[in-house]
Structure formats: C-alpha cells, structure tokens
Design a protein around this nucleic acid. Sequence first.
DNA 1: AAGCGAACCTGGCTGC
DNA 2: TGCAGCCAGGTTCGCT
Length: 293
Amino acid sequence: MPELPEVETVRRGLEPVMTGQRLVRVEQNRPDLRFPFPPCFRERLEGQTVLSLGRRAKYLLVDLSSDEVLIMHLGMSGRFTIIDPLQKQKPGAFHHETGGTDLHDHVIFHLESGVRIIYNDPRRFGFMDLHPRRGLETSLHFKSMGLEPLGNKLEGDRIRTLFEGKKAPLKAALLDQSLIAGLGNIYVCEALYRAGLSPKRRAGTLSAARGAMKEKADVLAEIIRDVLTEAVEAGGSSLRDFAQTDGSLGYFQHRFRVYDREGETCPKKSCGGVIKRFVQSGRSTFYCPKCQK
DNA sequence: AAGCGAACCTGGCTGC
DNA sequence: TGCAGCCAGGTTCGCT
C-alpha cells in the first residue's frame, strides 16, 4: 500500500487519537507478520502511554512512556482503522459497524478512551518492532537509511553526489531506500514524468557537472518534494483499498499523470506521446517515451 | 560490488 | 460459474 505520503496520512490520522493515551490492552493474533514480533511484545506495550507519533520514510514511530519506540511498517497491504465506539462509523469504512473482526486483523490496540486501533494486513509484508528511543537512528532498521525527502537535505547537490558513477537506471536509484528513503513505485514514476527524465537513464548521468544535465538534479529534487507534498495534502493515493484511518479515501490517484495510465495520451499538451508500461527492477514503470529523456 | 531477479503472502481482477 | 494466470503501493536475499 503505502509510500511516504500514505504513511504520513496514517500518522496524521492516528496522532490525535493516540497521543496522551494509555494502551490498556493489546491483542496480538499471530506470532509474526513479515518478521516475528519482538519478545514480550504485548507486555512491553500494555500500560504505556503514547507520547507522540513520528515518521521516518515509510516507518511509523510511536514514542512510549517506557522510553521505547514502537516501530511499524505497513508493507504492501497494511492499514490502520480507528474504531470509536462513541462515534458512528463513516459509510464506506472498512470495518462494519458491528466492529466484527477480520481474518487479517493481526494487532488491536485498546486505548483508555475506549477507542480501538486495528492493524490489518492480508499479505503480512508489514512488521512491528520495539527499540529503545536512544540510539534509534543507528538501529537495524535505520542505520543505512537514506535522506528524508521532505527534510531540508534533499537538494540537487545531494542527488548528484549520491548518484555519482551509478550505472543503475534512474528509476532503480530513486527506489533505493539507502539513498533517498520514502519513495516507492508510484511517486518515482510521477516525479520522473514531471521532471522529463527517462526511468531508463543511468542514474550517474545526473551528476554531470556541466552541459545539458547540469540543472536536472536540482529540478528533480524540487519535483520530488512537490509530488510528495501534494500527495500528503491530498491524503495519499487510494488504489484498490487503501483507506485513511477513518475509512475515507485519499484522492491523489486522480492526479496521476502516468501511473496506471498505459495507453493513454501524454497529458502534456504539445507532446502527443502515448504512456507506456514496462517492467524494471521487477515492477511496472509507466512513462512517456516521447517527453521523458 | 553493484545490479539484477526471485521470494515473501493474499486477494482481486481478467479472460478463457 | 470456475479456474488459471497475472498483477499489486515494499523489502530482502542470493546469484552473477
């Protein structure tokens, strides 16, 4: 499901409901997701108060009063639903009003307010972990993680340095979480389209110090930030079934210019090209061969 | 050593 | 209607 904008949307949904709340009970319905849950997972959560909710790239970070951080990754199909027994569910919400449980409701957090927060993940590519707050940046999940694209460090110069000498396609380099962390298949396709850059181009060609490519890395850095910011403001993208925590849908998918638009004409007025799809690094790339060079 | 493809899992859609 | 095949927003492993 989720790239950075979707995870940020989830974070914003959970934040007002969870912050300051004590976790009175945690249901864990299976021993593992993508990885086993950490030892004594429930015991280390129950009784703790949520201090704040953060995000790093595609990871959700829940700061606990125990000085541990609950690290959560949604994989491809993970989602959170907030069930407030005092409030009628919005129509279209994933969980029906009886609050019946789904086969893939793997974790349920019970807050002292009575609210339940359900983690559902059919494919189980997501995971949860606990780590002391101190040293989180150097922990397993984060030690080799790349730049935060919405932070202030994503500049053309950084891209030029990171991509220097790389023979991998630009698409693959942008998907590499150890370089820039948070982009996924959709937003890479969209950013490359807006930047007029071919996904097939060697990443190292953005490092040219002079000539026609000189400004391209700067443009790309700005466009990446623009696309992500717009998507966050739109509440992320709802493909298939991704929903916000209250069951409502993001709407950035209506603004896709190339993603999932194979065969359509390029939205750029004077271009007239046709959007193509091909497989690259094992995943679908959508692009306009005419105006992305 | 970088750069591929495969694997991990389930469900939804398409087409025969 | 049934069923096979393909596809999916991510990450990691293992083989060149």
